[in-house]
Amino acid sequence: MVVVSKIEDLKAIITSLKSNQKNIGLVPTMGALHKGHLSLIEKSVQENDFSITTIFVNPTQFDKKEDLENYPSTLENDLKLVEKTNCDLVFTPSAEEMYQENLHAEAFYFDGLENEMEGKHRKNHFDGVGTIVKKFFELTQPTKAYFGEKDFQQLQIIKKMVSKNQMPIEIIGCPIFREEDGLAMSSRNARLNKNQRNSAPFIYESLQKASELLKTSTIENVNQWMQQTYKEQTELRLEYFEIADEATLQTATKKESSKKYRAFIAVFAGTIRLIDNISL
């Protein structure tokens, strides 16, 4: 496994791969890797001639400075984990390397996908995501790129960006990896204290319950039930719960048989923000 941190070194490797007509798989990450990330890398290794993992905590997608400062950095351990997957290359640039003198996000329009859910609560977040993913796509020229469905809105936005920019990249969405108690795996989970960690599986439980309720009830009733059930939680605070159209991500108010829906949730455990979703 090769580890490079300079764009110049990466470009030389990509040029060689392309001249030999190799398929390239890409898994962009922000480090603090867990089994969910590793499953994406393993899938890339299986499906491509050459696999690249990027480890980069992207400053332009954080709306709060303290979130960026508190984001876990475990590069040494991350590299050991990636090596076990038989990944070929890890790209670990600095912010200066990726942004040079211009540490700003490009402005994107994702046909309104960016204005729903996370977009309402994290200003300019998806501009930051779009900026860095586009940079990585341009640098690595992947055949396929792999993203987890935990960030389902991000997945849809990246698919939209690829489509709008006519990039010849297949975007692969992969199922959410969960702990044994149902909590969606996240780098943020490591920051939970014992009480918060014990309470956090309720997030997935509430999504499962909402999914069951929706079979016999209205969206409005399910929304009301969710608001009430979180008022009874001492360790968890509901930021939002929305049932949305999977394609447009627009909030649904009534069920239509022709549409596919997904439930999305964001919850605070103290200052730690956790997200999850479930197909309905």
Rank of each mutant, 00 (worst) to 15 (best):
K260V: 12
L10V: 05
E114D: 12
G36N: 00
M161Q: 04
E76M: 02
S163K: 09
V57Q: 11
L81G: 03
R197D: 03
F108H: 05
E239W: 00
G112C: 03
I275D: 10
E246V: 08
K134I: 01
R273V: 02
I176G: 08
L214T: 10
E97M: 10
T92D: 08
L207Q: 15
K11N: 10
L236D: 08
E69Q: 13
L113G: 04
H37Y: 05
I203A: 10
R188E: 01
Q156W: 00
I169N: 06
S211Y: 09
L213T: 10
S73P: 00
Y146H: 13
W225D: 15
P28V: 10
K84T: 15
Q141P: 08
G128Y: 12
K231E: 15
E116I: 06
A252D: 00
E96M: 06
S186Y: 00
F264Q: 02
T54V: 14
K259M: 03
E179M: 06
E96R: 08
A145E: 03
V222W: 01
Y240L: 06
E106S: 06
D49R: 06
V133L: 00
P28T: 09
N48A: 05
E170Q: 14
I275N: 09
S163P: 00
K255N: 07
S16C: 02
S39T: 14
R188W: 04
G130H: 07
N58W: 11
E114Q: 11
T251W: 02
A190Y: 01
M117Q: 03
L155V: 15
I169Q: 08
L81C: 01
D127L: 00
N70G: 11
Q250T: 13
F62P: 14
L274E: 08
N277K: 04
D127E: 03
A263Y: 02
